[in-house]
Design a protein around this nucleic acid. Structure first.
Length: 414
RNA sequence: GUGGGCUUGGCUUAGUUGGUUAAAGCGUCGGAUUGUGGUUCCGAAGAUCGUGGGUUCAAUUCCCACAGUCCACCCCA
């Protein structure tokens, strides 16, 4: 057994997988760009208070899932557990409220949460996220949701369903909470332990409980959607119009709730039933008060986070086979030197090139050339060197011919 | 943090009702008379049987703890 293994919940992305990741990253970047979103890269760790204040002191993420450490014994830093708070921090810090609005950003980041790993859930995972900042208008919400949908379309994933809801704003939410608490209090004895504690902090979470009994009890519970203030209600209605206009199919699910405190109004999730209990592949919502709660200017926003590992589990991507333009197979020490020189020349022509670094026999080199998917093999032997030439073998057609060493580039001329 | 399953060479597995050299396939490396690959054939390397402890004359096989992994709860992407 090795002395060291990757920390629990982390994964090596191996050469057989990196091409898929690269492909995925490029695809996501292209989709985001097509909507006019620009990439932002924020630090992997931040002041712990950014998340405590941004995400919410009492949320699970903050209370039990953060990787927090003291730098030099005093400064508390935390590995990014989500992407939105850092982006808003950067928006504020860099005065982006003075840029042309809306500011549309996307990111593709490693993200860290100290949870017990299981299918589609890791301690270090990758999130693709997009944030549209600066607009209160529901069309901004619709655009963000369309961007999320575009990702699933591009990856040909049809096993996800879009659910939307509104979690209201501070104005209407408080009075709704009172109503909901009053309703739940009637059944407090029958609620599960978790829900009893949810009641005080975030009663809406009770609606989201998977406990059968709780679900039964909350069947007729009042839902936020019925208690929205007129502003939130019309926001929700207009969002529906935009979605309909762009033929995005969705289901209204009044039980969609957010685990992060900063969400207001629109909340949405793209869910699947193919990842066990990890049903959310992409989730997001509006966070109109976040900037101000971080000490910034009023800056409404909406965004989502999308789990790359989960996306990859759903998308059936296969890596390309290995490919090399040419392999130089020398059989003598002198030929090895010439091979290095030729390899350098071929690379300067833009070719992918390999040559022997193992002192192997020609036969073994041919096998290796085959494994790396080399189209051509240039064989350099004592005899060919005497004639200042080399033997070129096309591995696909098996055709061979000799050419002068100085004529290397003619291999690719027709 | 809680619960359950799993843990044998790089990978996928077999196996030992506890007893001399733990088996196979894939992969890796080498070879198959005249330095030329992908099929075939032959051979080699590679396993403290997850780690630590216990029971026993003897454990990889039984027991305990821990770790890792998978799944579920919780939570979320």
């Amino acid at each position: 057994m090795p002395n060291f293994t990757a920390p629990k919940g982390t994964n090596d992305i191996l050469p057989s997988q990196t091409p898929i990741w690269r492909q995925t990253e490029e695809k996501l970047a292209a989709i985001a760009a097509s909507f006019g979103y620009e990439e932002i890269r924020t630090p992997m760790f931040e002041d712990t208070n950014l998340f405590a204040r941004g995400v919410g002191e009492s949320t699970d993420i903050v209370t039990k899932e953060m990787y927090t450490f003291l730098h030099r014994g005093k400064e508390s830093l935390t590995l990014r557990p989500e992407g939105t708070a850092p982006v808003i921090r950067s928006y504020i810090e860099n005065g982006m409220h003075s840029d042309a609005q809306p500011v549309k950003l996307y990111y593709l980041n490693p993200t860290f949460r100290a949870e017990n790993p299981q299918k589609g859930r890791y301690r270090q995972f990758h999130q693709f996220g997009a944030e549209g900042i600066g607009s209160y208008d529901p069309s901004m919400d619709a655009e963000i949701i369309m961007l999320g949908k575009a990702v699933f379309d591009a990856f040909k994933i049809d096993s996800v369903t879009l659910y939307i809801n509104s979690v209201g704003c501070p104005k209407c939410r408080e009075s709704y909470y009172d109503t909901l608490r009053a309703f739940l209090s009637q059944h407090i004895g029958d609620l599960c332990e978790d829900c009893k504690s949810r009641l005080g902090k975030n009663p809406m979470r009770v609606l989201d409980c998977k406990n059968e009994n709780c679900q039964k009890l909350t069947q007729n519970a009042p839902v936020m959607l019925d208690y929205l203030c007129s502003e939130c209600e019309s926001h929700f209605e207009k969002l529906a119009e935009y979605l309909a206009a762009s033929s995005v199919e969705y289901t209204v699910d009044p039980k969609i709730v957010r685990g992060l405190d900063y969400y207001t109004k629109t909340a949405f999730e793209f869910k699947t039933d193919k990842l066990g209990s990890q049903s959310a592949v992409c989730a997001g919502g509006r966070y109109d008060g976040l900037s101000e709660s971080l000490g910034g200017p009023p800056a409404p926003g909406i965004g989502f986070g999308l789990g790359i590992e989960r996306l990859l589990l759903l998308a059936d991507l296969s890596a390309n086979e290995r490919y090399t333009d040419i392999y130089f197979a020398p059989t003598t020490d002198e030929a090895r030197l010439v091979s290095f020189k030729l390899a350098a020349k071929a690379r300067s022509l833009g070719k992918t090139v390999q040559t022997d670094t193992m002192q192997r026999s020609l036969k073994a080199q041919m096998k290796f050339a085959d494994k790396i998917g080399s189209v051509y093999v240039a064989i350099l032997t004592e005899e060919t060197l005497k004639a200042n030439s080399m033997t070129i073998r096309n591995m696909l057609t098996k055709e061979q011919f000799d050419i002068a060493i100085v004529d290397l580039e003619k291999i690719w001329e027709k």
